[in-house]
Design a protein around this nucleic acid. Structure first.
Length: 434
RNA sequence: GUGAGUGUAGCUCAACUGGCAGAGCACCGGACUGUGGCUCCGGGGGUUGAGGGUUCGAGCCCCUUCACUCACCCCA
């Protein structure tokens, strides 16, 4: 019986890893421009970190966590999201004492034990950012700008940033109660799920997709009418700043978010092509979280992007962005040629040339096939004649032309590259062979 | 956790009312000397997801089980 990977845990094979690396690289560049710095934190945390931050009644904590008891009896959990761990590290190392504002990003696997489907895995990857230490609207706007720039940089064509305010501890409880009362009054018209939500998490009634509920909730009290003055002004300021900087977004009074710690600013990124899922990312403000985890009363805001979903949306479009993996392929024809090319190739590789080496144990025909598949634009063929001349014959794969004993084994990589470039230029002027 | 669908070669899929398990792609090799893609020829590769049952005979019918996929819930 073969051993297969765990359900919902996928291998990412060489055919795909270049895409992942490209996305990560793009993201790093954007983060650098906004002066965010990377943190790398553990995948395993004490269970209470998540129960206390995410919220006892959320789906994540109630039914989706990978939790087990360690040998010494402590309960540990594979992180289902990134913010809790970042905040834990922030508190544990007293970063607030060292700098007034921390702008952080991370990249890594998250774990939720849900039933897998398109765009949803049990181990999935997120790229996320957190800003600790600022609660003014300008930082919210800046984070949303970063999010927008990142999505554009990654090549997402059609996406929407949906923005809302969830209110804060002053105004949200009243709204929550109003929704509960409203739902209670119309209990008979709610779908089964919403009837359950009524007790557990009434705010969720707002984003139910069942048509009858949507219709009913359209007549429900709105968050907007409950916002306290500071919340109202905060959102207005964020919007004003985004508008002024021409950052596109859509106001979405119904978005609610699945984690308890969010206050005020909350947002999601919606895109097409994800099956039943349509969110590639989401985030929001979490002003009370640091304090509730034993730290100073420091505000925070952040977001996370699901990498699998980003890659799903991008599809094959990413491939055109990838660098060609090889500059040349070297084909030795016999044992002596192999001995020489091994040494020469090694020297060139140390100088940065990306080359693949064939094997003299295979025929030239076979090596050419291999070279063709590798995508190398040139093949350096080395047989008896080339050894005598101390230079490789170059096969230009695109233009189907040979240059006998043209590339000296003694050349440096810049010389090799200059020569290969010159072939392209001269061939444009010269009449094409078939 | 609930529902539906699908399991045959590495991948995508055929195989009539039960009758010798196949194709395309991919991989490897060849088509006179040291040259790729196109074409042609050849080759390797299978416990038909697993276990049991019915039958002279099961990929196909029955039971059990496992896995995967999609959807619900919810989210990245």
């Amino acid at each position: 019986m073969k051993i297969a990977s765990v359900k919902g845990f996928h291998d990412i094979l060489p055919g795909e890893t270049a895409r992942w690396a490209w996305v990560e690289q793009r993201a790093r560049e954007v983060f650098a421009r906004y002066h965010f710095r990377e943190v790398r934190i553990p995948i395993l945390e004490r269970t209470e970190l998540f129960t206390r931050s995410i919220g006892d009644t959320t789906d994540i904590v109630e039914k989706e966590m990978y939790t087990f008891v360690d040998r010494d009896g402590t309960s540990l959990t594979l992180r289902p999201e990134g913010t809790a761990g970042v905040v834990r590290a922030y508190v544990e190392h007293a970063l607030a004492q060292q700098e007034p504002v921390s702008k952080l990003f991370y990249f890594g696997p998250m774990f939720r034990r849900e039933r897998p489907q398109k765009g949803r895995l049990r181990q999935f990857h997120q790229i996320g950012v957190e800003v600790l230490g600022r609660d003014d609207p300008a930082i919210d706007a800046e984070v949303l700008m970063l999010l927008h720039d990142l999505l554009v940089e990654l090549g997402l064509r059609s996406f929407t940033i949906e923005l809302n305010s969830l209110g804060d501890e002053r105004c949200r409880p009243a709204f929550r109660e109003a929704i509960r009362a409203f739902g209670e009054a119309h209990r008979g018209h709610l779908c089964e799920n919403c009837q359950r939500r009524l007790e557990r998490n009434p705010m969720r009634l707002l984003d139910c997709k069942v048509a009858s509920c949507t219709a009913l909730m359209a007549t429900a009290p709105t968050m907007e009418s409950f916002w306290c003055q500071p919340c109202r002004e905060h959102l207005a300021a964020v919007r004003h700043m985004l508008d002024h900087a021409s950052v596109p977004y859509k106001v979405a009074p119904r978005i609610v978010r699945g984690l308890d710690y969010y206050v005020r600013t909350a947002f999601e990124v919606k895109a097409e092509g994800l099956g039943a899922q349509n969110a590639v990312g989401g985030g929001g403000r979490y002003d009370g979280l640091v304090k509730s985890l034993g730290g100073p009363d420091v505000p925070g805001i952040g977001f996370a992007l699901g990498l699998e979903r980003v890659l799903l949306v991008l599809g094959a479009a990413v491939d055109e962005q990838l660098e060609p993996p090889l500059e040349a392929f070297v084909a030795p024809l016999d044992a002596e040629a192999e001995l020489q090319t091994l040494a020469v190739a090694r020297r060139w590789r140390r100088e940065g040339l990306k080359i693949e080496l064939g094997s003299a144990s295979r025929s030239l025909k076979s090596q050419m096939r291999q070279a063709d598949k590798s995508g190398a634009p040139f093949v350096f063929i080395v047989g008896e004649a080339e050894l005598e001349a101390g230079a490789a014959t170059v096969r230009d794969m695109l233009r189907k032309r040979d240059y006998r004993c043209a590339v000296s084994f003694r050349w440096t990589v810049p010389e090799v590259r200059a020569y290969l470039r010159s072939l392209g230029e001269s061939a444009e002027e010269a009449p094409r062979h078939e």
